[in-house]
Design a protein around this nucleic acid. Structure first.
Lengths: 194, 194
DNA sequence: GTCTATATGCTGATAGAC
DNA sequence: GTCTATCAGCATATAGAC
């Protein structure tokens, strides 16, 4: 019975706009229009205005995005197979959606790192939780703790970088190359562990 | 005897502002103030306004940044040593400069990929030239063409992604992990070639 | 080429009726 | 909780004297 609430629509619309236009490139009017919510409602639900709304949107998107990691990797018994497959899925996704980023966190983080300290801190929290959860996931799949952390760091780094390059070049080549690189990294790490 | 021209000062100031505030986050007034040039001069030198000036700034910064690759890697006879050393240098740089990105291209590219088609095309040109020049460089250092291209793609991807993560987290850890990952990739690629 | 003054529209945010 | 009307300030861009 859950009719979509105004607050929820505002957050969803903000996520969408942040993914495509970034933080400075998105106006509160655009958000209120996209969410079909008047200005007054926006400032009722988010008295802190644009920064507070953007923080809520980043947190929501960050949680959803973090859950993708186990979702994409679970189907494969061998991680060496799972990693490049995940990058391939990401490449198909971004091409099919017209080269729009799946997640606003990387886009916004790069843009506001020096200009909006509070939002930067929110993005840092989100990324730190990805690292923590990813380390736990890889540990659960049999890797030692420090190997697991090294691997999730490399994977997140390669993924964010490849999104920027693929989006800009309008080519899946960087995402595929990143997937192969992380597969190589994993092989080397696991050989060492034996 | 070259006194700094107005046009040059405008481009330099724009590079600096794009690195820290991004494209949408930078106003032409900020630029004209930082360059000590009045509005009229800005529109005299760049009749196309903000987009034209930003394109010129990205191109200039892109060329300078591309020249860093040979500069950082030449000192090392072994590429396996050179790659992680270059990432370490980047990590020291970004920490010492207060976590400011060295290059505006990645930051701006992520932010405007969907909103500013002309600028996106400029960023794509720059990245494509990095890939081309990087491939030529690695080929010159003895790698086969496709190995060289795979390596520069992975390196640029890891570098851009690691900058975003390190800048946001205020930690050099992602840059160091990325350097180790690319070193592993190179080892695997060169072993295969033998 | 340089500079000031200004036009026009959009920004984030608020007041107050409903 | 919702919505309209409106604010003051800043955005990009231009006109025209020097």
């Amino acid at each position: 019975m859950s009719t979509t609430g105004t607050r929820e629509r505002l957050v969803t619309a903000t996520i969408e706009l942040l993914r495509t236009r970034g933080y400075s490139g998105t106006s509160v009017k655009q958000i209120s229009a996209a969410a079909n919510a008047p200005m007054g409602s926006l400032y009722h639900h988010f008295p802190g205005g644009k920064p507070e709304l953007a923080a809520a949107a980043l947190r929501d998107a960050g949680v959803a995005y973090g859950q993708l990691i186990p979702l994409l990797l679970d189907p494969y018994a061998d991680l060496r197979e799972a990693l490049p497959a995940a990058f391939t899925t990401a490449a198909e996704q971004i091409e099919q959606t017209g080269w729009i980023n799946m997640c606003p966190v990387g886009t916004v983080a790069g843009e506001i790192a020096d200009a909006e300290p509070e939002l930067r801190a929110v993005a840092a929290e989100i990324i730190a939780s990805w690292i923590e959860d990813g380390t736990a996931y890889f540990t659960g799949r049999g890797l030692p703790e420090d190997t697991a952390r090294e691997l999730i760091l490399g994977t997140l780094t390669a993924l964010e970088g490849a999104f920027v390059l693929s989006r800009t070049l309008r080519s899946t080549e960087p995402l595929h190359a990143a997937g192969r690189a992380m597969s190589a990294r994993l092989s080397q790490l696991t050989v060492r562990d034996r």
